[in-house]
Write a protein that binds this DNA or RNA. Structure first.
Lengths: 204, 204
DNA sequence: AGACCAGGTTGACAGTGTCAAGATGTCTCC
DNA sequence: GGAGACATCTTGACACTGTCAACCTGGTCT
């Protein structure tokens, strides 16, 4: 996330545009996004965003980058003080889902490769950083539990599982209603998830 | 998926429109979808789709429904002849990812609650059917391995894991490139996934 | 034969992203 | 302090979009 220097006309228009974008996507989903609506909410003319972000992909990429930066912060806070790699993995899983739930607008574009410039340097740095963080935890787990663990595969599986959970989370209740079944709280699901993954990772 | 009776003007316009929609979404993603472009590809005027699907949500819902119907077929074919519940779960996981990869246009809208009418009866029937299929396998696994297994939680986790994998699959290679790591083939990942999940389900 | 209607077309409307051109405030340099 | 120079934002235009109303048109039924 680039730090924009406050400008004279508007306090910090780029930040305001990102906030409005996240808000709008949280309300209507990525397809409901509209550059003009964002400009309207930020109180500027329809062409103002172009001056900071080029086109709408640029703005969405900036929001996605901000989301990954936020995710990295959440990861760092989650593992703070934890030494046991298993606990660290669990904490990061919860942090991932929490971030997705708390920043739905950001999360909606973070993995939407179709609508962002996923080779923009700042975006690459933030997203790869998050992945490397997970990979580091996996390396610790390998060292502690199972020297033969394929850490890349384990990281991919963990990311997939948590990402899927975060993606489907908003619809889980509606499915439970239709099928007349129950849904466990997200928090508990992640705990069970971690237990399963870990027992799998340890099992060689 | 409703079976449309061939009409006199066009052979089977609804099916042609669904096919064009899936093709378009596969190319440009859900946000790149355009009703007029779909009509253009089907060789009809821009207002023709409305006659069959009401608005664009109706068309997208129909495509999503078709995707779930296809998924149910894939599930049925995958488990055909298999008696061991663990093998059935593994086969369904692969069928899920295969369907997502083979029908990217359909997959892109199947879980996109923001842009479809997810309470349309035909859609509910098809999507709930797929979930119930998974739930049935989980019940078999519970009976065979662990009577205390929470099958709803297990089903949610499995669906999340496989869905996440299917969602992230297109981007895995690009991530591997950026981080200079390796990515195992999808097929192998699912195998490892199943082993892990099963050992988790059986535990305790 | 005549009415009816599903299926499709045409034309209009407001809304969209993007581009070019103009306005306006702030900075630097002499 | 005045004058460019520049970043920032506005205005206006263009082609495109989804949706609606009005209009044809080929097939069906009584």
């Amino acid at each position: 996330m680039p730090v924009e220097t406050p400008t004279y006309h508007h306090g910090d228009l780029p930040a305001a545009l990102r906030a409005a974008t996240a808000e709008l996507i949280a309300e209507r989903g990525p397809t409901g996004f509209s550059l003009r609506e964002v400009a309207r909410r930020a109180g500027v003319s329809h062409a103002a965003p172009a001056h900071h972000f080029g086109d709408s992909r640029g703005l969405l990429t900036s929001v996605a980058t901000e989301g990954f930066v936020q995710l990295n912060i959440a990861f760092a806070e989650a593992v703070d003080g934890l030494t046991d790699p298993v606990e660290r993995l669990n904490a990061c899983g919860k942090a991932y889902v929490s971030t997705a739930v708390n920043y739905p607008g950001h999360f909606g574009v973070m993995c939407a490769d179709e609508i962002i410039n996923n080779d923009e340097p700042e975006f690459v740095e933030a997203s790869v950083g998050a992945y490397l963080h997970l990979l580091g935890i996996m390396a610790d787990i390998r060292d502690a539990l199972n020297p033969e663990l394929d850490i890349e595969a384990a990281a991919t599986m963990t990311w997939s599982a948590v990402h899927g959970l975060a993606t489907l989370a908003p619809g889980l209740d509606s499915v439970a209603e239709k099928t007349e079944t129950k849904t466990a709280p997200l928090h508990d699901l992640i705990d069970q998830f971690t237990v399963m993954m870990i027992s799998g990772f340890a099992a060689r």
